[in-house]
């Protein structure tokens, strides 16, 4: 056990854990940020997708010891009011079914739009390729990313 200092959603947190603890379990067990979901633990399903320094990352395969210099954003920190364009588009198109994978999908989509505000369908499919949705909401996800892109353009 050792003490690590993490910057999550704009705040500093001190945690006492083993350094090899995956960041996902620190977010969930220590910080109570349960929006990042456990789906596979090996970086295959995308349910835990969060942002590390603004890019989509997988906290389930990132150790705590390697995260101390990072700027970490979870779904809870994506927007203050739940109205990030991606979150709005997701609601407008009624994307979610069970919703379990959706925080990860939303974070992956938000990271994509931050670097590519007007992505092609190929870019959307590439960016979200490893975010599994077992309910089969993919057609709506694709449409919602396009919608979010338009919302962002209209508000620029």
């Amino acid at each position: 056990m050792a003490r690590y200092s993490l910057r999550v959603n704009g705040e500093r947190h001190e945690v006492d854990v083993e350094g090899d603890t995956p960041l996902l379990w620190v977010l969930r067990d220590e910080l109570g940020l349960t929006g990042a979901k456990y789906g596979c633990g090996v970086g295959l399903c995308g349910a835990c997708t969060s942002h590390v320094d603004g890019a989509a990352a997988r906290p389930c395969v990132t150790t705590t010891a390697d995260s101390t210099r990072a700027r970490i954003t979870t779904i809870e920190g994506l927007s203050r009011d739940g109205n990030h364009p991606v979150q709005r588009a997701w609601r407008e198109l009624d994307v979610a079914q069970c919703g379990y994978c959706q925080p990860g999908q939303v974070m992956a989509a938000a990271a994509l739009l931050a670097r590519d505000p007007d992505p092609s369908d190929e870019s959307i499919e590439e960016a979200l390729r490893d975010n599994v949705c077992r309910c089969g909401t993919y057609p709506r996800i694709r449409a919602a990313v396009r919608r979010a892109s338009r919302i962002m353009r209209d508000e620029r």
């Binding site: 940020l33 349960t34 929006g35 990042a36 979901k37 979870t74 779904i75 809870e76 994506l78 927007s79 739940g82 991606v86 979150q87 997701w90 609601r91 407008e92 198109l93 009624d94 994307v95 979610a96 919703g99 379990y100 959706q102 925080p103 939303v106």
Partner: peptide, 16 residues
């Protein structure tokens, strides 16, 4: 009108 839990889902607040 969509899913009533949509806001909780996309903000990570839904408790599974």
């Amino acid at each position: 009108g969509g899913r009533v839990d949509a806001r909780d889902i996309v903000t990570g607040r839904t408790r599974y």
